[in-house]
Design a binder for these strands. Structure first.
Lengths: 340, 340
DNA sequence: TCGGCTTGTGAGAGCGCGCTCAATCGCAAG
DNA sequence: CTTGCGATTGAGCGCGCTCTCACAAGCCGA
């Protein structure tokens, strides 16, 4: 054969396959799209031609004609450090990719922090994507809320923006989960409990603090030992040190993420405090981070991977024209290990 | 204004903007693409119309006409666990995104392991992407080598496939770097040195073992204490235990990645060995993992983030029609901390 | 005054594909 | 032998955009 480099470069088109198979473009199109009404022998001939030419459909053309791109975007308004640093994202992404692998859609990951946000938005609204999943949504990311006007969007976690009230999202009951976690510490005999919170601009951070407060209020304990750990490991350590530096001792510590809890435990031990003997520590997530530290964390488990899976499944439903529940709340429970 | 939902859903087109501005489609296109030969007053009118209608170019149409998608793919033939588990990837991705943020391209991340590989390949060769970066290339991923026939590709790390000899890649000299790391242990007085290797199906794994061997050979030491750690933390721990179980004691351990080294150090300490007093441990990468363990790792530093940046820059050059060096070797050095 | 030039603009042909609609072919019923 | 119907197939339009080319002004020197 004399199919040379030049030929290989310019990808074969439907037209060329049609010519090679001796049929019309429409018929090749039918074969490619597995239309039932093509006679078997023609199907065979066309498939042979496709194979021979190494034909791959041009998705730009297809999506132009089709008005569908078969691409789903995962938008994460975080920087690389956060994305890769927190195993929570790993779980979410795994759930999503697992679910999508079984579909015809491919996944696009967008780290949409600050500068590139505008470019990302143009990309998302430019018809490149049939739908979007948004995870780790901060206040200040309002541009994402408007996304819903252009395409189907499913949020992982309740959106902060009040404008986005009718968004579809999948979340856990952060207030109740944090309440339960704190309650566990109380029931374990802690008499003075502090907390390391997540970011104050994220619902997960705000709601977990709220749950913590409620549990303490109910038990008649003060909820004044609060420090912000910003959902990072070093932040967790810093927050724990800050709490210790206030001079008031505590025997329970509720931390709003495992990653921060690992940092906090390290900080406590630096100061000579034993976990759980001197301070009982409750994490949140049950991410792999819970097991990386020197003390295995007792933690509030949230089903992150399952959440990712459900996010994807919900979006696929929407894209398939089905309805989807506006809000889905997933269950949490407490995993008891060493730290509390 | 009576621009209602229905209107907002079907995105405004060039045509509509043209009508609104009272000019032709071609002129609007020129404005959108910042062509210099449009009179200032027309530019202004068009931009006003664009703003008023909320116009965003349809990228499918654009890429169809243009034969360029302004999208770059990052292909990582790993599963989510590996990708998120190893800080090396975080650094690479950060470098790439930083560089791309300044360009007009957007990044697509593809986890192309096994089942979804075929779908990914179709995507990549379907004209959705102008170029690709491939990182963490294993043998067995031959499909990636053929990618170069369809579009510009830059590899992070020398490709394994001999067919891909003329690929463009950016790497470090793994043999020399491992040699240096091992040499450091020898110079530090170690008399019996073991190694935990990376995957045997990746150049990085193979070459680092080779460098280790050379250093020991040169010093007249046997290089028989070798165990595979598969580039994961738990794998590193397992490999270290395996080495200890052989009954032959060693006082130096060269580990082919920091992540594995963290696992190995944990394993050594479990067995009551002190690091660095009983066993000096040398890591590789200088990733954040080097600092997460109980002992800060002395390690061979490779400039991962810079490598990511360079990968992106090189691909942009290729896409811009410029030539690029077929192979670029980045420098490494040794960062001395506690473990050796 | 005219031809040549630059500069800005519009008309129109694709880019590769899906989809509608009409045409064709058998074949059984009337 | 004609009619009708289902099963296949092909012709051609349109998706939204870029780009080439031709055209309309406005300007210069001759």
């Amino acid at each position: 054969m004399t199919i040379e480099a030049g030929q290989a470069r310019s990808a074969p088109t439907l037209e060329m396959v049609a010519a090679a198979a001796g049929v019309s473009r429409a018929t090749v199109s039918r074969v490619v799209n597995a239309s039932p009404k093509v006679s078997p022998c023609v199907v065979e001939a066309v498939q042979a031609a496709i194979l021979r030419l190494g034909y791959t459909p041009n998705r730009a053309a297809r999506s132009l004609a089709n008005r569908r791109s078969m691409v789903i975007a995962l938008v994460v308004p975080e920087d690389t450090t956060r994305l890769f640093g927190d195993p929570y994202f790993a779980a979410i992404v795994k759930g999503i990719t697992d679910e999508l692998d079984a579909s015809d859609y491919v996944l696009n990951l967008h780290l949409a922090r600050s500068e590139s946000a505008q470019k990302t938005l143009a990309y998302l609204t430019g018809g490149n994507v049939d739908g979007a999943l948004v995870v780790s949504h901060h206040s200040g990311d309002e541009f994402l809320s408007t996304l819903g006007r252009h395409l189907p969007v499913v949020f992982g976690g309740r959106p902060v923006d009040p404008e986005a009230v009718d968004s579809i999202y999948i979340d856990i009951d952060n207030v109740a989960a944090a309440y339960d976690g704190t309650r566990y510490l109380i029931d374990a005999g802690c008499t003075r409990i502090a907390t390391v919170t997540g970011s104050g601009d994220m619902p997960a951070g705000i709601d977990r603090l709220e749950g913590f407060r409620r549990a303490l209020a109910e038990a008649g304990m003060p909820a004044d030992l609060v420090a912000d750990g910003d959902f990072t490991m070093t932040g967790g350590a810093r927050a724990a040190r800050e709490l210790l530096d206030r001079g008031e001792s505590f025997d329970g510590l509720f931390v709003a993420s495992d990653l921060m809890a690992v940092g906090a435990v390290t900080a406590l031990r630096e100061r000579g405090l034993r976990v759980p003997d001197d301070v009982k520590v409750m994490g949140f997530d049950d991410s792999p981070a819970a097991l990386t530290g020197e003390v295995a964390l007792t933690t509030v488990r949230q089903p992150s991977e399952e959440q990712g899976r459900l996010l994807a499944r919900t979006l696929l439903q929407l894209l398939g024209g089905e309805d989807a529940a506006r809000r889905t709340i997933m269950p949490t429970d407490i995993v008891v290990r060493q730290s509390a």
